[in-house]
Design a protein around this nucleic acid. Structure first.
Lengths: 179, 179
DNA sequence: TTGTCTGCAAAATAATATTTTGTAATTAGG
DNA sequence: CCTAATTACAAAATATTATTTTGCAGACAA
């Protein structure tokens, strides 16, 4: 079903454009990438079916909607055996306040970006995790986000070496939008 | 121009739906929120104009597209006076590989999630920042992401306490929001 | 009551998405 | 070198959707 596609300069431009501006109509997108609407449509469809991108997401203005607290939470496990890690990661997935979680090199095993309605709730959830002894968490360190110095603007696609790069001799991918 | 809107249950459902699935057509969205297509359309339009959400972004499958290295980079400044911070943040904005950057409470001043084509490039950029003495960076700590244990799935909107419209008496915030 | 305002649904229209078709360029096999 | 077979594209045709317009009903104030 999932077919491997050649990621030529058209597909690169389609992907990077949709990454930064997913609300374009097919016609607008086609104009930007210099294809006919039908050709553009077929490529978008093929790219999606092949898994090169999944969904679109609206970036909502949380500051405008509600009070909240962002925090990085770091986890160090007693032992990082596969079963321990599996149990920990499984538990993390059950907590929607923990928005993502990355396994790291170094002394700390995991770091997660989390969002809570207030500090009380943050403390509740962290304490709850600590108290669950079967998770074998040795240490939790919480670092509150005071300010977003730079907002996430997407992957630096123009700085990465895409696959099939030998086929790409066109101009550079679309520029990133600035705040 | 930007009008204060009442964030009732319809608008909440519209925003949370688009946050998780922005590729819906207006008709599909209207069905999900139990409104007529026209009423739904007008609300979406008003919400966007009022700044409750900005754009849509395709979440592209970077693993499928190219080799890359994700890393959290932590910065501690010599002094965190306002001018030093301004200079640092300004520099950070010029580096697309640094995807976001948060000012933190605690001993470390900033943390950023970054994406590079390889470790060599990571080192180049970190070294470059260290060498720029006018940035007054005391310490840089890099923590490589070994694995994404949990992928970003959006804000935990159902867990937050949304503001009622009567609390919107203050001025509006219109910051850019991450996906 | 009367008038104004608001939000909604329904209808009408404009625009777009999506499919179909034909064609030129490319490739592989003989 | 020739001939399918394949691919990607544009153009046309059609299906579907976006968007505007209209009018109605409820809420509210004078």
């Amino acid at each position: 079903m999932k077919k491997k596609l050649k990621i030529d300069s058209y597909n690169k431009k389609i992907l990077s454009t949709l990454h930064l501006e997913g609300a374009l109509t097919n016609i607008e997108l086609a104009e930007r990438v210099n294809l006919s609407p039908s050709a553009c449509f077929q490529r978008v469809k093929a790219l999606k079916e092949a898994g090169y991108f999944r969904n679109l997401h609206a970036d909502i203005n949380l500051d405008q909607l509600c009070e909240h607290v962002l925090a990085y939470i770091e986890f160090t496990l007693e032992d990082n055996s596969a079963p321990s890690r599996r149990r920990f990661v499984s538990r993390i997935h059950e907590i929607p306040e923990i928005m993502d979680c990355m396994q790291l090199s170094g002394d700390v095993d995991y770091i997660s970006l989390s969002c809570f309605p207030n500090l009380k709730k943050l403390n509740e959830i962290c304490s709850g995790l600590s108290d669950q002894t079967d998770l074998r968490i040795k240490h939790i360190k919480t670092r509150i986000v005071l300010e977003r110095a730079k907002w996430f603007l997407g992957y630096p696609l123009s700085k990465l070496k895409w696959l099939d790069d030998e086929k790409f001799d066109g101009e550079m991918i679309s520029e990133r939008v600035s705040i």
